[in-house]
Design a protein around this nucleic acid. Structure first.
Lengths: 152, 152
DNA sequence: TTCAATTTCCCACAATTTCCCACAATCTCC
DNA sequence: GGAGATTGTGGGAAATTGTGGGAAATTGAA
């Protein structure tokens, strides 16, 4: 599994193209070729995967049997339905599908945040508010994390 | 895991480059190669890790599933936000990303403080005021530390 | 078929980053 | 203390990257 690192300020041009910072591009395994997968994130952001990692993710999803419940089927459908293949062009850019642009409310100033096998794409303003926590809230979050990790 | 020791006065040049003191460089395991990870610290400072140590840290985080809750995702984001790979150049320098320079309000005079697998990078003036505690406050802090450690 | 709209491909300029060299300062060893 | 080696600092030049926009190609609708 790939493990991407980095946070990058990027710009979307008028055509909705996002140029991938060379430092991030350099982290792609050779095998990636020129294809990525973009999907909606849970929050107001998009998520990029290599095609391989995306297939792994969906494989995990599909390991859960559809017979189980309507909710399972619904979740799988919704989760998968935003996914799009995108091509990296000669200038290391991808064209972000319009629907997804709108979903994540992306303006010209965006942020790419890599962590693990996911690369999140945020509008800069929204990202900053997402990260803006005061100390009290932070320690609450930490506590929650602690609990949930131990529940597993 | 690496265990760094030492405190060093350093200078940032006009291009935002930080030259790593040879005494610190000598503590890097061979395997580090020329790559480090810089991230925001909780306080107004930056933190350097070897890439390996950083991946260990994030692996612990990513062991908790993103599907679990929005708070989990948020916590992970806040924790990893700002991380960037940096290369050590031929003159044993790293280029500190502009965003992070601004975040930690670094001027030309900075301090590197090594502790465990982390190396903190502070603006000198800010660092000094951070360390400026009187005896009473110090013993109060120690008490707090003691309590919170035992609560775990 | 024709026209308009979108997409893809390509080129070019500007800004940044990287690489390299050189000098100054410091340290080390004799 | 002095000479040589190592380290810290600065800056110039080349290479790379980011960004914008134009033109060709493709698509879809009338």
């Amino acid at each position: 599994m790939t493990a991407f690192i980095g946070e990058f300020n990027c710009k979307l041009d008028e055509k909705g193209r996002l140029s991938i910072p060379s430092k991030l591009r350099a982290q792609f395994p050779e095998a990636v070729g020129n294809t990525l997968v973009v999907n909606r994130g849970f929050e107001k952001c998009l998520v990029l995967y290599t095609k391989e990692d995306w297939l792994d993710e969906t494989a995990k999803l599909n390991a859960v049997d559809d017979f189980m419940s309507p909710d399972i089927r619904r979740f799988k459908r919704i989760f998968t339905n935003g996914a799009n293949l995108v091509q990296i062009d000669g200038a290391q850019r991808i064209l972000v599908p319009k629907k997804l642009l709108e979903y994540a409310e992306l303006s010209a100033e965006v942020i790419l945040v890599a962590n693990g096998n996911k690369i999140e794409l945020w509008d800069q303003a929204i990202y900053e508010s997402e990260l803006n926590v005061d100390a009290a809230e932070m320690s609450q979050l930490a506590q929650l994390f602690h609990q949930q990790r131990n529940q597993g």
